[in-house]
Design a binder for these strands. Structure first.
Lengths: 244, 244
DNA sequence: TGACATATACGCGATTTGCACATAAGTAAA
DNA sequence: TTTACTTATGTGCAAATCGCGTATATGTCA
């Protein structure tokens, strides 16, 4: 039976369908290290383990809409840069029933988390440690404070690893770093983001040159305040043509 | 209600669930141009239009397994390089019912299509024209022979555009081009693949140097046959560490 | 006013890239 | 057998880029 005929004769009630969820990898850079928002599970399965905020996709709701709804309802965040990451569809990824999960990742500046963390006690911001270099890929570890690695529910560890890989890969060609900064920022702050994500030290003059030559930055004429030394100039992100 | 509680109390029968399909973007490079395998629809909706081979994901089957099954059953191909592309979840993307589709893309050398095209009359190989440059992104046109652009069913035109963008993006850092070549190939053939996908002319000595310096190629010592001029050396792809 | 810390700019060698051109090695015709 | 022809393969060099040390500028604070 070919595809066309099958689809035409398809009776929606006749076949068992998987459930579809969206999981959100809400990342930031906090104190020079990548971090992710997790919620602590208090029930079976994976009770006590940490999971990504997520939820079911409504029948009248697109995947992108579901991701934004979960961003607001479950992660308690307002708008953010959101992008689809990957869809996880192993048969046994949830021990209860067949669930396919579309992972999205979202980026926000660190200071945008404080309100959510106060209002929702089950939420925590975990620091990520990446045990591989470059874009090799593989699992990553999530820790709170200086504690031991957290136990992650389902295949959420795999999701985090993939998100870090994607983040590293898109960093130098896609303005993605600016989603992690406030509207005005210094070149040093931008470099800190790069160094935290790539987990390397970068050469300052070369970094400056590259960023300024790229044409993404717009000098505001203003300078940072509060520094006890020469204040740096504040820049603004000038979106590329196709962007957002 | 938070995510954990919701999932725990979730009754699979209580909520209407979307169907999940896999669509396959089976690409190649034919006569110096990117090409894709399409099937002609003979029923409503989009009767007469062209669609990607696809099918429903079984309840006991992972997404990757479904993609491989569709590769064999619907596209009539044996093994190929297969990679997940993106998941399309607009509410009205199928006029009949809510269907979420996970798009996979697969790559094969041109000569592997001949058997399938002969045995299945509904299949055709359409040449792609990319009206944007670089990795800008956007829709692409599919034509058969020198005819007019084909009408594509559902959001399959969008899928094709995304596949071309991904292909261009991954070309220089990921051995993906070798999936489009036979096991032994000349440097000229490799360059032809690059030029077809990027839609640009490349400088020959520079291309040679880059490829050889990368360490992906292994000289076989053999030479191509049948040329009426100096035959080029045949190379083999030496997979990078993490690959496949 | 001067010490201090960081921002910002400059200079230079090493590496990569684009490109023209020279040389090599096959086939096919004279 | 020789020579013309066509493409493969290699080389040399200018231009652009990158890494990195160092010099200068400009704020704060004692």
């Amino acid at each position: 039976m070919d595809e066309v005929a099958f689809l035409e004769n398809y009776d929606p009630a006749a076949y068992e369908r998987p459930s579809v969820t969206v999981d959100l990898i809400l990342m930031s850079v906090v104190d020079g290290a990548p971090a992710v928002l997790l919620t602590r599970r208090d029930r079976h399965p994976f009770a006590g383990a940490w999971a990504l905020p997520g939820g079911f996709v409504g029948i009248g709701e697109s995947l992108d809409e579901a991701a934004h709804r979960i961003l607001i309802e479950k992660a308690r965040m307002s708008d953010a840069y959101v992008e689809q990451l990957y869809t996880f569809g192993a048969v046994d990824r949830d021990p209860r029933t067949r669930i396919i999960s579309v992972a999205y990742f979202a980026l926000l500046p660190a200071d945008r988390f404080t309100a959510a963390l106060k209002s929702a006690p089950e939420l925590a911001l975990a620091e990520l440690t990446v045990p591989w270099s470059g874009e090799t890929g593989g699992p990553v570890e999530a820790c709170i404070g200086n504690g031991n690695p957290l136990q992650l529910a389902f295949d959420h560890g795999e999701m985090l690893g993939l998100a870090m890989r994607r983040l590293r890969g898109k960093l130098d060609y896609s303005g993605i770093a600016f989603a992690l900064l406030p509207e005005r920022f210094t070149l040093r702050a931008l470099q800190d983001i790069y160094e935290a994500i790539l987990d390397t030290k970068l050469n300052k003059p070369a970094f400056r040159r590259r960023m300024l030559d790229r044409g993404w930055l717009e000098a505001t004429g203003e300078r940072e305040t509060g520094a006890s030394f020469r204040p740096a100039e504040l820049y603004r992100y000038r979106k590329a043509e196709g962007e957002r």
